[in-house]
Simulated assay, not measured.
Amino acid sequence: MRRAPTAVSQVGTAREKALSELDPLTVTKLWDNPCWLSFRLNFVAFRFNDPVYRWIETRYGLVRPEFVALYAVGLRDGVAAKNIVASSGLPKNTLSRAIQRLLQRRLLRRETDPEDLRSFVLYLTGPGRAIFEETMPLMIQQQTAMLSALTDAEQRQLCELMDKLVIASPTWPNDLEKEGTAS
């Protein structure tokens, strides 16, 4: 079994104490796991997403796909639904329903794309912008708390490494059976 790579310099009393406070299965998944990358990415993402999306749903009545769409448009007004699908990893039909609900709630508005008159682009309305602006500090606070274990240089390095993975993602298989991995 391939173990997760570890840095020898990380071994120390503080690390040993931290490990003793983790669930034993979490420790196993960290160091005795052939899919170490998937575990780490999912664990960290869940620890960010779960409290954030629960708070947003409770406060604004928006489920995750709805907020994913609202957040995307908040980052870049005038974006098409297909771009939200491509950047979120959520299925097209899920995001389509989410966008319809946001349009019905008047948190988004749809306009004809001036560059392609057959397509539509999305914009935040005033209430949609207010939700986006109100959620950002909480999300930044959660991210800051999570990144506080890293130095500024480590945070930059992590960002650069994650950038490389995202940029390489179009080359990854989308369907494992088509790639010949099914038995």
Rank of each mutant, 00 (worst) to 15 (best):
Q157S: 13
L30Y: 07
V85A: 07
W31A: 00
L102D: 05
S119C: 08
M146W: 03
I167H: 04
T151E: 06
K82V: 10
P5M: 15
L41H: 02
I131E: 13
N33D: 14
S38C: 04
V63H: 01
A145T: 15
P137W: 08
E133C: 08
D113N: 14
V44T: 06
G126Q: 08
A153Q: 09
A69F: 00
T6A: 15
D152C: 04
M146E: 14
F39A: 01
D50T: 05
D32R: 07
R109W: 01
R118S: 11
E111K: 13
L147T: 11
D77K: 02
D113G: 13
K29Y: 09
A145D: 15
T112K: 08
K178Q: 10
V44K: 13
L95C: 09
A98I: 10
E111F: 02
I56F: 07
E66A: 05
D163R: 14
L122P: 08
G61T: 04
N42Y: 07
V73C: 03
V11I: 08
S169K: 11
K17H: 08
T181M: 14
I84L: 04
W55G: 00
L75T: 05
T13K: 15
T13N: 13
E134W: 08
R76S: 15
I84Q: 03
R76P: 01
L150T: 05
N42M: 07
R97Q: 15
T6C: 11
C35S: 11
L108V: 05
W172H: 03
